[in-house]
């Protein structure tokens, strides 16, 4: 899942207070699960903006709306469009994808990002999320006992660990597990530690972000022009 966290309130307030009518648009999928941009967060921000505008003597109107996903066209239904049209600006609490998708759909509207999209991750326990994938386009996790060095090593070392691994923790942050310490531990348990003596050659990053905006096309799934629904 995409994991995000809400932007600092003051940032959002500065954006909202520039307009007369602001719509807070929540997203009901990933950002709901990671408690950054679901209906509850939308309502909290709504309350916060109302309280702050009263405190600071600004006058703007805030409305709210949450849709299932902001990365699919059909969820921007009539009601959503109407609410967006009625507002001067939209703060969307969806991930970066949603923010862009919304901007593309309503080019005339000022659309602000309400959250910082941080990573692809997992709920380790309730209230704690951790990065697990960097979306590099070429999965090598299975070479490393199921632990991704690209996403989970601060230096993305493919032949780690570096000298900074200490007591199983990363030198960059003592709360963070050293991915390579985990890899070594797991491979030792699996009895495959010696596999690490093979040099992992420089990675092909062209499948990653470095290859430019990526697209995935499934020709078999695409609808013909004639069968596309209007909308």
């Amino acid at each position: 899942m995409i994991v995000a966290e809400r932007k600092l309130f003051d940032d959002l307030y500065a954006k909202a207070s520039k307009h007369k009518k602001v719509l807070l648009l929540g997203c009901g999928t990933c950002v709901t699960v990671c408690m950054a941009g679901g209906e509850k967060e939308v309502d909290i921000l709504d309350s916060q903006l109302k309280l702050a505008s009263r405190e600071r003597g600004d006058d703007f109107e805030v409305t709210t709306h949450t849709i299932v996903r902001q990365c699919d066209d059909e969820f921007f239904d009539e009601e959503t469009s109407r609410k967006i049209a009625a507002a001067d600006a939209v703060i969307t609490l969806a991930c970066g994808v949603g923010v862009q998708f919304c901007s593309e759909k309503y080019p005339e509207k000022r659309v602000y990002a309400g959250v910082n999209t941080v990573f692809y991750g997992a709920t380790v326990e309730q209230g704690l999320w951790e990065e697990r994938c960097a979306g590099c386009g070429e999965c090598i996790v299975d070479q490393f006992a199921g632990i991704c060095p690209v996403a989970r090593c601060a230096k993305s070392l493919m032949n780690g660990p570096c000298g900074g691994s200490s007591n199983g923790k990363c030198e960059v942050d003592k709360e963070t597990d050293c991915a390579w310490a985990l890899i070594v531990k797991r491979m030792k348990e699996l009895g495959t530690l010696e596999e690490l003596s093979e040099i992992t050659l420089p990675k092909d990053w062209s499948t990653s972000r470095d290859g430019g905006p990526r697209r995935i096309v499934h020709e078999s799934l695409r609808l013909d022009e004639g069968t596309k629904k209007e909308g």
Partner: peptide
């Protein structure tokens, strides 16, 4: 609050 820890939602 830590980057990704929501203390209020941890059980």
């Amino acid at each position: 609050p830590q980057e990704t820890v929501h203390d209020s939602s941890r059980t």
